[in-house]
């Protein structure tokens, strides 16, 4: 199978969808002729022109509301925030309008909109360009939240996001953008709510979010040398969350660790832990463990930044601690 980068695979998905459906258009800063800060739209301006690749001024709240309105009329906007951190300026529109309009209209008004943006802590981007934020959106009713980790998933999930009639957050971790992986030639979609078992094992289950999947797989390769077989689950979508795959794995292993670069309090790990405890208490052989990024604004200093992210060594330690419980 051909190899592609995460960004190129996602862009191929966007290109295919725009060719298929003329109601799809992209809005964002520098996504026109420039092709996007992260090359999310490179080459599309030449294909579809300024009508469907709309450059905007720095006005997140404005174009978030504008695109929400466009979606209400049946268009399919893809709002490209570059850094998800800037979507926060449009939070009032997002929460009070975008998320609620289907409910308020008794389902008569659709909301087929995709918000995409880069997340995660990479390369001393400092605290305004390093947020993850997904628990904010999984907390709210109405949103779909997608965190792809492979080029194949990025393309398949973006296509599903564009075809969804619900508002979707498509969150691309900056550490994954240039990672390469196999991508099928033929068209495919990946449904929401289906976790992927990245590594099968029987001693412990690790649910890893976004870039932490790769860090965890590195840690597990190290532990495999000692005969420790860890099962690694990539949820792929956080809302809806495929709790069944996690429960099946915990039924097998009895031990669960959630590795998440985002903060621990009220985070995805807390939600997964609560669900597993409620649904599979008698499968648990140890308290559910979490390994998170440090609960602090992300430091600019590269050495301090490295100190707040769960790395391979810390994941190995966390798995060892879990097995010692």
């Amino acid at each position: 199978m051909r190899e592609m980068t995460f960004t190129n695979a996602a862009r191929e998905g966007l290109t295919e969808e725009m060719a298929r459906d003329p109601s799809i258009f992209v809005v964002g800063e520098g996504i026109g002729a420039r092709g996007g800060n992260f090359n999310t739209t490179t080459g599309l301006y030449e294909l579809y022109g300024p009508e469907r690749l709309r450059d905007t001024p720095i006005s997140e709240r404005g174009f978030t509301g504008l695109c929400t309105g466009a979606a209400m009329t049946g268009a399919r906007p893809v709002v490209d925030f570059m850094f998800l951190d800037f979507l926060l300026d449009g939070m009032g529109e997002l929460i009070n309008q975008t998320a609620k309009i289907q409910y308020m209209s008794d389902g008569r008004v659709p909301m087929p909109i995709v918000f995409r943006g880069s997340i995660g802590i990479v390369g001393a981007s400092a605290t305004h360009h390093s947020g993850n934020y997904y628990p904010i959106f999984t907390h709210l009713p109405g949103f779909r939240v997608v965190v792809p980790t492979t080029p194949r998933d990025a393309k398949g999930l973006l296509k599903t996001a564009i075809r969804s009639d619900d508002p979707v957050f498509f969150l691309e971790h900056k550490a994954l953008l240039n990672s390469k992986g196999p991508v099928p030639e033929e068209e495919y979609l990946i449904p929401f709510g289906q976790a992927e078992i990245r590594l099968a094992g029987s001693d412990a289950t690790v649910v890893a979010i976004a870039a932490m999947v790769n860090r965890t797989l590195e840690a597990c390769a190290e532990l495999a040398g000692e005969g420790i077989a860890v099962e690694v689950i990539d949820p792929r979508t956080l809302a809806p969350l495929d709790i069944d795959t996690i429960l099946e794995s915990v039924h097998k292993t009895g031990r669960l660790l959630i590795v998440d670069e985002d903060f621990a309090p009220s985070g995805i790990g807390a939600e997964i832990a609560a669900q597993v405890m409620a649904l599979a208490f008698n499968d648990l052989d140890a308290p559910i463990a979490r390994l998170n990024g440090v609960h602090t604004p992300t430091p600019y200093s590269p050495s301090l930044e490295a100190a707040v992210i769960p790395n391979t060594k810390r994941i190995v330690e966390a798995i060892r601690d879990l097995l010692a419980e």
Binding site: G254, F281, N282, D283, L284, D285, A286
Partner: peptide, 17 residues
């Protein structure tokens, strides 16, 4: 209330099952 104090009869839910 003392964390880490040994409790000889503690058992995980899974082990009990």
């Amino acid at each position: 209330t003392v964390l880490g104090e040994p409790d000889k009869r503690a058992i995980s839910p899974r082990a009990r099952r």
